[in-house]
Design a protein around this nucleic acid. Structure first.
Lengths: 235, 235
DNA sequence: GACGATTTGTGCTTTTTTGCACAAATGTGT
DNA sequence: ACACATTTGTGCAAAAAAGCACAAATCGTC
């Protein structure tokens, strides 16, 4: 959608074109936060931002922020700071968010439905294109997707049609929001159908072949980690 | 609830009693996974487990697992492995899961409701004791909490009653599931009401005073990280 | 056009985390 | 009682991440 050709304040600068050879995992995990903060600033019409300010908005140190950004390229101006729109665009390009990613959600229970409704996706480069579930009473029903703005109604497809649905919608990202028991089987089928990036909400470790990425979000784990620290405070 | 006195296979062993002085953050972040896997094994009646097996179930190397566990104490038996129930209990004790933690959820939208329904909490040391929202049309309504087994209906309280609700329910953990715009204000009030551990689902960095822990779960960020790697694969 | 105030980008150091390899401890079988 | 097969616990090395401090670059002003 974005068709930037040159929105750089210094178009002849030595920009590292294309994707960068090696960005550390720690840096990658922080890029989304930078991207979000920059989007916020852009919405608020702010033109420039310093590393100090952006760092405060994302909870990292300014030095770390600068080092992270330096891995993408030299996009700031000494004595001035960073151009909000420009930096935002560079990060989005680096992360592949300049085009939309199609997402298939497997498991349309409470969590799956909440994910489908989640407004943050659309505005951040993702589009839920398919819903799949094994529950006969859900299959064929329609579920609203996306938050205010543009909501779309999506049909819930049968789990048995998973491969076909993925092929038709060209989904690249799979979300597993099924019960623990079926998560691994669902994941196997996603992989078989060509999905190589999986976001797992089921509380199990998913085994996948090499070349497939899995990220896990475990609500209980997060609370347990908090509980651990909370317990320490009591002493 | 648990009133273990001695379930150790070697009761006279030199157990490091109480909480341990220093466990690295990386280790803490993995303990929930070990705990979950051990619970699974216990459900399946398995008595013993080797570091190799438990590591495979949680996606870490066996060496790392052993080192992690060694920070809690020497709970294994060389040549044999670990006693499933015993190790599970030791981890739960170390993490403070031998008693329930009361959780207040602020924001009863799709996500908040999904969290309330989430079955994983009850079985892992947490109990949702209060729901709070600012939406007049939701206040006073009842929401089912907990999954199959024992569900409880909870009244949605007004945001203005937040402090009172926390006091009455004695909640220690706060979950922020509000829109981005109100997250910081809600967090401030949680902290003022005495909450020192916050789980944040809103896509903003929350600023809190020292001594308060915040953990963030950002669905869009996780997908973006996946997208980043996915893009790399294409090349 | 030079000066001072900023703010980035980065070399270097310190800390944290991971990985390796093996001695120490346990159970088994003879 | 002893040799042997396991499997843990851990010292040490390597790698990754975070933090510090400052030189280099830029802007505004005189």
């Amino acid at each position: 959608m974005c068709t930037f050709v040159d929105m750089s304040p210094k178009s002849s600068a030595s920009l590292k074109g294309g994707t960068n050879p090696k960005i550390s995992e720690a840096t990658v995990s922080r890029l989304p936060a930078y991207f979000r903060a920059l989007s916020q600033l852009a919405d608020a019409q702010q033109i420039r931002v310093s590393s100090e300010e952006l760092a405060a908005l994302t909870g990292v140190s300014s030095a770390m922020l600068r080092k992270d950004l330096s891995h993408l390229g030299s996009y700031g101006t000494r004595g001035v700071g960073y151009d909000v729109e420009f930096l935002r665009y560079q990060i989005s390009r680096e992360m592949g968010l300049n085009h939309d990613w199609s997402v298939v959600i497997v498991g349309v229970g409470n969590l799956g439905r909440a994910l489908a409704h989640y407004g943050g996706f659309g505005s951040r480069g993702f589009r839920v294109v398919a819903l799949v579930d094994a529950d006969q009473t859900l299959i064929g029903t329609k579920v609203k997707c996306g938050a205010e703005g543009k909501t779309v109604e999506l049909l819930v497809h049968a789990l048995s049609d998973l491969e076909e649905v993925i092929k038709e919608t060209n989904a690249r990202l799979g979300v597993v929001a099924t019960p623990e028991q079926s998560a691994q089987a669902v994941c196997d089928r996603l992989v078989k159908a060509g999905i190589r990036s999986v976001l797992n909400f089921a509380p199990v470790y998913l085994t996948v072949p090499e070349g497939v990425d899995v990220r896990k979000v475990d609500l209980a784990s997060e609370l347990q980690i908090l509980a651990f620290h909370e317990q320490r405070k009591a002493v």
